[in-house]
């Protein structure tokens, strides 16, 4: 029995071995279940659909809202998006705050700031009293802000207090008689350029460039990130730059990023600043460029149709123009 088992074992192993080898062959030969793949057809289909995929991505881009550069009121901001100190929608972000700043050991002032980021340069706007240039009738800044749906506004340069000065508003050149002062020019990219207004006119800068706004007041406070310290009496403005006064300034922090500032003044709580001191304040806030606007009783900051600073002289003054920032979102 044992002798017979040996050859049986041997042949059994032989049969198993042959089965294994032949089944491997079957696997390789079996292509019955393969599917069809047409690389050309697939490629042509993908190339043909390319335009629709690109279009889908284009129309999925965040919408760019552009406001017309005219003196018509801007779209109304969404009242639900206001907080006490902020406003934010897809096109504009505003953050306001009050700050006590110690200037000397004995003097601390109140500054009111607004940090603003907009999506498009047309959201940095100006409004004129009665919507027209040269109109004698002046109105309150807060009224102009409300009529134009400003999210935030400050007083401008009070252009019609003087017959001269290069004045451009909402892309329209209204006046080109220079006063030989620092002018602030805002181009169509929303960037600030500060230069002597006489030079700007003579060199053709005003004609050659697409400018949205130009202001005639000054002086320049910050240039290339450095505070500008004037050593002479700046004779173009009525409020002596060396006096401690309420002040208004506008600065550029970056691309479509701005800082507004008003300094409370002429009170025991806050005396006000000289323009040189204001220059240091604006430079400390990281402005690349900053410019002094009309001050004194004109200094006003209006946020959500309310006055955000303490206006000196017993209350708001009527004026000829404001600078304001608007939402670009269409009213739904």
């Amino acid at each position: 029995m044992k002798k017979a088992a040996k050859p049986l074992c041997f042949f059994g192993a032989l049969i198993v071995c042959l089965l294994v080898v032949s089944s491997g062959d079957k696997m390789v030969d079996d292509r019955a279940s393969v599917t069809e793949k047409d690389v050309t057809r697939d490629t042509v289909r993908v190339v043909s659909d390319m335009d629709s995929r690109i279009n889908a991505r284009i129309f999925n881009l965040p919408k760019v809202y552009v406001l017309p550069m005219d003196f018509e009121p801007s779209p109304k901001p969404d009242s639900a998006k206001f907080t006490e100190d902020t406003y934010e929608d897809e096109t504009i972000s505003v953050k306001c705050w009050h700050e006590r700043i110690q200037i000397t050991k004995k003097r601390t002032i109140t500054a009111n700031f607004a940090d603003i980021t907009i999506a498009h340069p047309t959201q940095l706007r100006t409004a004129l009293s009665n919507g027209k240039f040269g109109v004698i009738r002046r109105v309150y800044g807060s009224k102009m802000a409300e009529m134009n749906n400003a999210v935030i506004a400050i007083n401008g340069d009070y252009y019609n207090f003087r017959p001269q000065g290069v004045i451009i508003r909402q892309g329209r050149v209204f006046r080109t008689e220079p006063m030989n002062i620092d002018g602030l020019f805002i181009n169509s990219d929303g960037d600030f350029v500060v230069m002597n207004d006489k030079k700007a006119v003579k060199s053709g800068f005003v004609k050659k460039n697409k400018l949205y706004q130009a202001f005639a007041f000054g002086p320049v406070l910050v240039k290339d990130g450095e505070p500008v310290q004037k050593q002479y009496v700046y004779d173009s403005v009525e409020c002596d730059p060396r006096a401690k006064c309420p002040r208004t300034a506008i600065g550029q922090l970056g691309k479509l990023h701005y800082l507004l500032c008003t300094i409370d003044g002429r009170s025991d709580v806050s005396m006000g600043l000289t323009t040189n001191e204001l220059a240091v304040v604006m430079a400390d806030k990281k402005c690349i460029t900053a410019y002094n606007l009309d001050g004194g009783q004109s200094s006003v900051m209006i946020f959500n149709n309310g006055i955000y600073n303490v206006v000196s002289g017993g209350g708001e003054r009527i004026m000829s123009d404001i600078i304001y920032f608007a939402t670009a979102l269409p009213e739904s």
């Binding site: 292509r31 393969v34 599917t35 069809e36 793949k37 047409d38 690389v39 050309t40 057809r41 042509v44």
Partner: peptide, 12 residues
């Protein structure tokens, strides 16, 4: 020439 597909690659 492809084992696992009936493969087409005709030039358009």
């Amino acid at each position: 020439m492809v084992y696992n597909y009936y493969f087409s690659a005709e030039k358009p």
